[in-house]
Design a protein around this nucleic acid. Structure first.
Lengths: 181, 181
DNA sequence: ATTGTAGGCCAACAACTGTTGACTTCGCCG
DNA sequence: CGGCGAAGTCAACAGTTGTTGGCCTACAAT
């Protein structure tokens, strides 16, 4: 029995996401991705056109932010950090963005867009004064991304060893203050 | 007049630091570094042996942490964030470490060492209970690195636009709580 | 003036990269 | 059965990379 076109495409995409997440853009070669998917490198080109387009498909990420405005005012900090921990632990896309955005201007631009379009509106729902929004969402982004960087990417031992509850306990109040304090 | 051996070596090292800081390890090619220094690529090999050794020389970073134990207890948070902002703004080494440590395991290991050997002892000076130290220095690292990431590497507009005083004002109390609160 | 040496340059290497085009093989439809 | 399109393979391309060795050239000591 032969594979369908969509099946192989999905196979390649899965392998690509893994490689990009683990190695970043440059070190994740098309040959390595193809080998992981057990197919020929030329199939990658056939289905995705180029390495850049394959990456674009692999790095298509949605933060899936919940609607914090519906929550009790004093719980938005812990809600946000909980959500981000969930997201980081089950979506390779987060790792891809961070690993590659640091050395690739196009991806950095994409991250700026994601934070402006997704985190910004969410924070806007918490304030009457729109002038506060950029500052507060920027502060929140710095805290959340710093945690992800230390825990999932650099794996600083004390940070990687922290329990989920510890992180929520310490970062929750910080984010609370940044967001609405 | 001909250049001295040490002069060229310093010239190469300066160009290398700039390139590694701007482009990361993979994209910073020996040829590009040599061109910046206006010398032949083979000279880089002559003076540094290999690209890896050149990088090791370029990424030799010291956080130069001040002695927080000598300060009034309630000012350690603002003192730490002020110091890190200074450091980030006048030492390309910080950028090199962050840009490359994210995709290079050896550099990540180096960063783990730096934070264990430099930030750890500093925090230890603030506590009687040594068991608290890893948690607290990990939290501080996450906050500080997250700010650096958003401001200097990703350049998220709201974070990049913040004034130095705003950052100290907002992150100071957070670090204070993480360190001794 | 000769020579030794250290600084510098050139050309080439082998390996690896993304990418391409021609070729083969499978399986469905008429 | 025959052929046609889709799925897959193979080999090669052109460019770039780190790295090497041989060669040239200025300068200081003899």
């Amino acid at each position: 029995m032969r594979r369908s076109s969509e099946d192989t495409k999905a196979l390649i995409l899965a392998a690509a996401r893994e490689r990009f997440a683990a190695d970043g853009y440059e070190r994740a070669t098309i040959r390595a991705i193809a080998a992981d998917a057990a197919i020929d490198p030329s199939m990658v080109m056939r289905y995705f056109g180029s390495k850049e387009k394959l990456f674009a498909a692999a790095a298509d990420v949605d933060l899936r932010l919940p609607d914090l405005a519906g929550l009790p005012r004093e719980t938005v900090g812990t809600a946000l950090i909980s959500h981000f921990l969930d997201r980081w632990e089950d979506d390779e896309g987060m790792m891809i963005l961070l690993r590659t955005g640091v050395t690739n201007e196009a991806v950095a631009e994409r991250m700026r867009g994601i934070f402006a379009d997704q985190l910004g509106p969410l924070v806007a729902g918490l304030h009457d004064d729109p002038a506060q929004v950029p500052l507060r969402s920027g502060l929140a982004a710095a805290q959340v991304l710093g945690m992800a960087l230390c825990r999932y990417v650099l794996r600083l031992p004390p940070v990687a060893a922290m329990s989920r509850e510890e992180i929520v306990h310490w970062l929750g109040p910080t984010l609370q203050r940044y967001l609405v304090g």
